[in-house]
Nucleic acid binder design. Sequence first.
DNA 1: CTGAAAGCGCTTACAG
DNA 2: CTGAAAGCGCTTACAG
Lengths: 348, 348
Amino acid sequence: MGRTTLQQIALSLNLSVTTVSKALRSYPDVSEKTIQKVKEAAKLLNYKPNTFAVNLRTQESKTIGLVIPEIVHQFFSSVIKGVIEEAEKNGYVVIVLQTSQDFETEKKRIEFLIDKQVDGILIAIADQTVDCFHLYEVQSMDLPVVMFDKISKSVSCSKVIIDDIKAGYEATKHLIDCGCKNIAHFRGPLTSQNSIDRYLGYKKALEESGLKFDESNVYHCIKMNFEEGQEQAQKLLQNNRSVDGIFINTDMVAVGAMTEFKAQGIKIPEEISIVGFGNWFLSSVITPSLTTIDQPSYTMGKIAFNTLLSELTKRKKNEHVEHETVILPTEIIERESTLARKKFNISL
Amino acid sequence: MGRTTLQQIALSLNLSVTTVSKALRSYPDVSEKTIQKVKEAAKLLNYKPNTFAVNLRTQESKTIGLVIPEIVHQFFSSVIKGVIEEAEKNGYVVIVLQTSQDFETEKKRIEFLIDKQVDGILIAIADQTVDCFHLYEVQSMDLPVVMFDKISKSVSCSKVIIDDIKAGYEATKHLIDCGCKNIAHFRGPLTSQNSIDRYLGYKKALEESGLKFDESNVYHCIKMNFEEGQEQAQKLLQNNRSVDGIFINTDMVAVGAMTEFKAQGIKIPEEISIVGFGNWFLSSVITPSLTTIDQPSYTMGKIAFNTLLSELTKRKKNEHVEHETVILPTEIIERESTLARKKFNISL
DNA sequence: CTGAAAGCGCTTACAG
DNA sequence: CTGAAAGCGCTTACAG
């Protein structure tokens, strides 16, 4: 009963615990013979290092925290998958925590992770996060932080993101290329950098193309869910029937809006063209299929972990850590919610 | 710099480490006065117990492992959410690991969790898992295991499941009630208990209703993804054009099948009625919307965690642990993929 | 009511 | 090349 300890291996071989410990990790100052002998015995006795003891001794847990707004969400669950797979390869364990986009919850989660003594933290901040003192605190405890997707410019750390301005620009430009003249935008929360940047990209595309930018064509979403898509679509129809294209912040909201338009008998893309954001699976099976911006999620998770890992490694070697910002590429995926209209224009 | 230790509190108050340790946990053999004093000092110095030391001393980590087939999957990501929320409430941390439905990977993940010294394991086994020696090993190390959703009857442990036979029966019965006479079934892997049971429910409903059960009407899915739904639908159309209803093992496969039928100009539900399984969000926004079986996921996660927690607690008190099997209710959600046909029959 | 001591299982400077 | 000793920070039997 009970796990095998170094003590037991030492006893069985008439060696000291010190030597056994070193031999197992192939220290150069242990003879090859001893190393062999010890490793054999360890295997025989099914020795596994006691993680608790190792943690206490080395003051590291090989555990990182991953803080995200929502778990049940195609984008974030793909990120989780990327992080976990990469972590597993490197012997790290991941503690996943959810904030539900709430600032107070986020602060609590960070506190929890500090208490649990993780080696570092990966975070996509909540839309409702208004300051980052909780993250400065993490950094002041000498724990590295890497932000991804939902970042704050106020934190000096490595970041893994996409270029939301460019993506928003391209989405809008596509609508313009399809012949839309009066393009609306469903944006996200004012505090979210993603939303701000996509909105700026939208605005830039309109201005560059000589189309009028009209603030009343911008609809605000807070929760970014299906129902909000329906609501904003309804509002849009009441306000302005001349809109012929919409760039929508997220596929889920876009699907909500499409459902509302379909229910009201409005034809997509003939009457209104729509571009979503994220390239969620959903967007490919909805009718009509949704033109959207493909955004790397799985890859973002992998790169975020590896960025953190490299900082962890450098710190251990007392090397200087340079923060980097990795920008991943996005791509427009053209589908039926804009395609037909494009064809129509070409044939003119 | 550095965390406050008991030592430091003790020094600052001229007390022993022992007394400080006990006071912080309000031991009855410490004077009320001392308790107050110590707690104040602890707060002042921002004391946080060193998890590593506590783990080593108590030989428990307040960490559990959660092993699932796929993270990017509506059902499982909801389970994760339920587990994590419940764990967080109880001061537990969750390590999520994915098997990709692969048996070898599952064995590795379990090994990893044993190495990391989790207090217990929650698992939905992979479809390709053929034996459970790896789980017996966990139990032999005196770690509690709780299985949920994808279980094996060969493991003696607590389980949280749904009644798949009943659910499959009701899904099929609904098709029969809608007037379908020739009902096919898209089933899952032969090794999955869920698939077996849903299939048995399908068979039972047919037999009870005096409809012929024909093995050639049963189509096997292995990966249970969108593409397989398309493939099997295609195969079905080549085989047998007289099928007028299908009960499909999972919403994702059902959506694949529907996409294929629509592409081939086959009307749903007029020509073929379809019932899916899971009540994924997808099923409500697809056109036509999909009739399906609602299966609790978030709740299943919560209950699975609490079942494990109660075993953990009992073990600590050296109480006898009785394994229990919790069966959660399912419900049929009627939508357009069967509804129209039902109306049609009623009007006859 | 308080505290000295042992010990959880490991790693790492240091001595020989 | 090997090992004795200290120590990571805590908890818990035990003594007083």
